[in-house]
Design a protein around this nucleic acid. Structure first.
Lengths: 324, 324
DNA sequence: TTGTACGCGTTATCAA
DNA sequence: TTGATAACGCGTACAA
């Protein structure tokens, strides 16, 4: 039933070593032999067993990817690119949604280790620094600086926050708000907030900061958050939302309230996700593709025992569209 | 460095068999022994090697998931639910984006087989029926009926098409259009088209059918498609789009052209994805969560050697919102 | 250039 | 109740 290297060896009349050599293209082999072995494989429909290989080589060619939620467009888009680069380099991706549940995240880490993955990309960060340090596996984190020893990939959050806020100020907004979703999603995102406050204070303009609680992201909560904002501060004329998803809710609420965007209220989002409805949204675009690519690349470098930069901070870009 | 079952055995002073038994909770074991073994595992920080287990048991507890593109919200959301149910039942998910590339899809199937996955969920269908039949692995397909032997999960496309079209007609549209993205994405989706045509013909109303080519989905193409539609038929007053992403483009184009929705043009989408911008979209909602759940369930049943229904067609629901 | 024999970490089949 | 020992399928020293 199952064709193994041994069956091929018998059929061709050589040893398993030779077959293995052909398979891995190692050592000296006569061309005739190579051909005969390949033919036999073809004929018997042989497929190498990666599990056996992994066990023997102590290398699985699998990467673990832990993110909060694949259904969030930001992660979905980055995951797409990570899968692309992983595949290109002969690696498979094991998808793990933590749902920002500490227990699940921990279980997945153990599971990934037990599965002998060669490395992990951590996009979810609910645990303590100490716990991450104890993972002892090649690791790359997204948007969180855990320690001096774990490389991370992020984009320039502070600059993003500045650009967004400056734009609102330049457009003569008088009362601006910073709206933030879950902070655990992206620990470095706090810098966007800091930049916002600093810019607002610098200009002496009135500003408000508002954020949801920590428990995952449900769009319903976004809706409520936005609704509250305008109830409490009907005179707001500029909003900087820390994600495009949130910004879309702002635009929607304005439409509902009959406030015209951008005339009465200007809206800037964050992320630069490409998805229905964001085409006309002014936003701070993160280089999602490049972040995904580098996350994989730096992980593979670690796996190969090479040096990788500890800190990778990519530039963001202001995309001015119709909401400002 | 690496702690194995053998180390534990030595430490406790029993055989590896016994340790394995404790690990799998099989056979008769004195409580004292169980405890001692567990303590030793704890102490030495032992973690079972799933790769070795897979090899020995001939079971990996990994499911392969092949979809066109995780960055498409429909697949991202369904994947979220599939991961949830897989995890719940002790299975991991290997994520594969085919990008609707026939070669990549085929390579991934081989790769998954080589990786000894226990089963595959196929949401991408670029190959021939014969090729799918030759996979010889537990299989479930999404939205494509491949043969009498491969179970599939879908929702009631024909009814969805009817509901959408009937709604447009009921709202007194006089010239309606059916807009469809890539058909390879969803082979059964043709039924939506059939239903549309039938309803339109039945009412004797003027109708147009328009679709993009087969090469993946780029939102830019959606945009062009929609633009063309309104250029060629400026008098259209009702659009049934075969996906929400497409429908959002229609709404956007209407806004751009100064046509009010729903007054001048009514728009119905398809899928029921939950994402910024779709909250106000009238759509035919597929039971995405349930589809994901059943895909996993039926796959696990096959893996367990149980019978599963060949055909699973779930009901759709018309959600009337602001665009009609 | 090719083969023998052992190891990878675990489970399963016997036997004790 | 417990223990030897042979698989699982492949890679690789070492030998020839």
């Amino acid at each position: 039933m199952i064709v193994t290297i041994r069956d091929i060896a018998e059929k061709v009349g050589v040893s398993v070593t030779t077959v293995s050599r052909v398979l891995n293209n190692r050592g000296y082999l006569s061309d005739g032999l190579k051909k005969r072995v390949h033919e036999a494989m073809e004929e018997m429909n042989y497929q190498p067993n990666e599990v056996a290989r992994s066990l023997s080589r102590k290398k699985s060619n699998i990467l673990g990817l832990i993110i909060p939620d694949i259904s969030h467009p930001f992660f979905a888009q980055m995951t797409k690119h990570m899968e692309y680069y992983a595949y290109k380099h002969g690696y498979k991706l094991m998808l793990c949604n933590s749902l920002l549940d500490k227990k699940k995240e921990k279980e997945y880490i153990d599971l990934l280790r037990a599965s002998q993955v060669d490395g992990i990309i951590m996009g979810s960060h609910t645990m303590s620094v100490k716990e991450y340090l104890s993972i002892k596996l090649p690791l790359v984190t997204l948007d969180r600086q855990i320690s001096e020893s774990i490389p991370y990939i992020s984009s320039d959050n502070y600059r993003g926050g500045s650009l967004a806020t400056q734009l609102l100020l330049r457009k003569n907004c008088n009362k601006i708000a910073y709206l933030s979703g879950n902070l655990q999603l992206n620990m470095l995102a706090k810098q966007r907030h800091d930049a916002f406050v600093r810019q607002a204070k610098g200009k002496g303009v009135e500003y408000i900061v508002k954020q949801t609680d920590m428990n995952g992201f449900q769009y319903k909560k976004y809706e409520n958050l936005v609704r509250e904002l305008f109830q409490e501060h009907p005179d707001i004329d500029g909003v900087f939302a820390s994600s495009d998803m949130l910004a879309l809710q702002v635009v929607r609420e304005c439409r509902r309230l009959g406030k015209s965007v951008p005339d009465q209220v200007k809206v800037v989002g964050y992320d630069g996700i490409q998805i229905g409805g964001t085409e006309d949204l002014t936003t701070i675009a993160q280089p999602i593709k490049e972040m995904g690519r580098l996350a994989v690349q730096h992980l593979l470098q670690q796996i190969a025992g090479e040096e990788t930069p500890l800190e990778t901070i990519l530039p963001v870009k202001l995309l001015e569209k119709g909401t400002t």
